[in-house]
């Protein structure tokens, strides 16, 4: 099932609604990499609240996605990781290094604002 990507100002929001296949994930990655350029977005938020399971492929894809969008000028924040999922990821040693995380969408927007602000100051 494809993931809807919403554009809100200069932020793209991908809200995952159900369990994803590897193919869906790759499609999401390609779509976001392309849309970040097209909409000149400053940030990407990926909402994984609906996911009960995240495997190594999903975390690797998310890391790759974050690195890709950063190269294209947008920061990525993953929001809504469930407690059980967080524990499972850590136990498996999948810690999403290099990807910002936040509790929910609202927090994610705030984190993004701080990140991009720092980014602009750094310039």
């Amino acid at each position: 099932m494809a993931v809807p990507v919403l554009k809100q100002g200069d932020v793209l929001i991908a809200s995952i609604q159900s369990a994803l296949t590897d193919h869906d994930l790759l499609q999401l990655k390609d779509e976001l990499a392309e849309k970040v350029g097209r909409f000149r977005s400053r940030g990407v938020i990926i909402d994984v609240t609906a996911l009960d399971v995240m495997d190594s492929f999903a975390t690797r894809t998310l890391r790759g996605l974050a690195a890709t969008t950063r190269l294209r000028g947008a920061e990525t924040v993953v929001v809504g990781i469930q407690p059980d999922v967080a524990m499972a990821l850590v136990e498996l040693g999948l810690t999403l290094d290099g990807v910002a995380t936040a509790l929910d969408l609202e927090e994610g927007l705030e984190v993004l604002a701080n990140l991009t602000e720092a980014h602009h100051r750094g310039r």
Binding site: V79, I81, V85, A86, V90, E91, T101, L103
Partner: peptide
């Protein structure tokens, strides 16, 4: 260490 990492994934 794991707890801290898991908390970070939850944005804390």
């Amino acid at each position: 260490i794991q707890t801290v990492a898991a908390a970070r994934l939850m944005g804390a």
